[in-house]
Write a protein that binds this DNA or RNA. Structure first.
Ligand SMILES: [Mn+2]
Ligand SMILES: [Mn+2]
Ligand SMILES: [Mn+2]
Ligand SMILES: [Mn+2]
Lengths: 228, 228
DNA sequence: TAATTTAATTAGGTACACCTAAAATGGAGT
DNA sequence: ACTCCATTTTAGGTGTACCTAATTAAATTA
């Protein structure tokens, strides 16, 4: 029986690797089938199937043990970061060059990330002046896959009064992004949190504006740093 | 037996419709399975299969009679022209905005044309100032699918001395395109054909240049108009 | 420890877009 | 009218990526 080697250059494989990467966290923990199933909107059985296929392939992108979850190999991480680079460069490009509204860049990038060539990647990178961050404030991985994850915390973690800078906003929910935009909350903006209750945060943005009441469901989409 | 309706929003269907469109010529003749098979690089049996599927679908993009060939319906033509618009806008965009070399735009556009959104299409169109022609000199279909086919003829049809303007160059063969570029032959360039033999054309481009010997295999990629 | 619940895997499908090999069709030439 | 043969279609498969239902394994709880 010849080991029939499967084709790993597919949109699907890309998406599995990206999902494992982002669910794995900083310490690269094992990711469960259920978590992947939910993230990818695919039945658990389909996940198992794909993980077995990936693990069995000669160029193995993952370490997988049945019932113990999956994590990326070095090659898998490289590939995941390459797609993430495509994604974030595309977002920056759509936002800055093609004047997309911020809440629309993610979905378009999610599709195109799998189909642009290395030349396209290089050209938009050049056009943008080798940007380090995408429009949501997320770090763009370098060509060699290097990426520093900056220290930051969810705005909802704040329980006391204080001054902060918006590090990033979540890119997934367009409705939420529109709300944040309407309130002037975007990466780099200074926030003065006045108080935090069980269901909302009260804060000021910039200077001289009246206090803003932000439901926790909205504040969840914002990550912040302390102003040094 | 319920009429299981198939999904027609696929890259494959796009490519079949485009191929039928371009092989159909101006008078929209029937296209044979063999012609499609060759154009698409797919077995004749696969073509038959797809044509049957397309014809059977409720939203019929084609008129197909077994053994008599296929042609586009109005809806099919609309769809083919939409993809062609994507393709040519993309080529113009890659060339003008992202500084691609002319011989590389086609392949990238061929992939991306299926995946860009209507918003993307609109934005690159705006960025380019609503261009009418792609970098090879081909007409870009309007949003409503209207497109005037200009009168032109292959450079190889010329048998006598005369003055012409390059209308367009073929986009498919990158090697040929590089040769034409090296000789300064691109849309809008004036040509003075000096003589034509069985295996080459001798001509001058612009003013003051020394005569150029163009093999017929290269000249085939050039279409020209008379200078009025 | 035994019973229950949850998570994950196996088993057996479907749809899509291809393929090769075999059969059918129909037009050309005799 | 008949044979030939290129073209086209049918028949039967493959690989990818899903699905549902049934089963098994591993945690939890009692
Ligand atoms: Mn995104
Ligand atoms: Mn994606
Ligand atoms: Mn082209
Ligand atoms: Mn195409």
């Amino acid at each position: 029986m010849t080991t029939r080697r499967v084709n790993l250059n597919t949109e699907s494989v890309d998406n599995y690797l990206k999902a494992i990467y982002s669910l794995g966290g900083t310490e690269e923990e094992r990711v469960t089938s259920t978590a992947l199933s939910e993230r990818l909107g695919v039945a658990p059985a389909s996940v198992t199937n794909m993980l077995q296929k990936l693990a069995a392939s000669p160029t193995s992108f993952v370490e997988y043990e049945a019932r113990r979850g999956v994590r990326l190999s070095a090659a898998g991480r490289r590939r995941a970061l390459e797609i993430l680079r495509h994604h974030r460069l595309l977002e920056a490009f759509l936002y800055k060059v093609l004047d997309y509204p911020i809440e629309e860049v993610h979905d378009e990038a999610e599709r195109l990330e799998h189909f642009i060539s290395e030349r396209f990647e290089e050209r938009i990178d050049a056009k943008l002046g080798r940007p380090k961050f995408d429009p949501h404030g997320h770090c763009i991985p370098a060509l060699d896959g290097k990426m520093v994850k900056r220290a930051s915390q969810p705005l909802t973690a704040i329980e006391i009064e204080g001054h902060f800078v918006v590090e990033s906003v979540s890119d997934r929910d367009a409705t939420l992004l529109k709300k944040l935009k309407a309130h002037g909350i975007s990466p780099g903006v200074h926030l003065h949190v006045i108080r935090s209750t069980h269901d909302e945060l009260v804060l000021r943005t910039g200077r001289g504006s009246k206090p803003l009441h932000l439901p926790r469901s909205v504040a969840e989409a914002v990550r912040i740093r302390f102003t040094h």
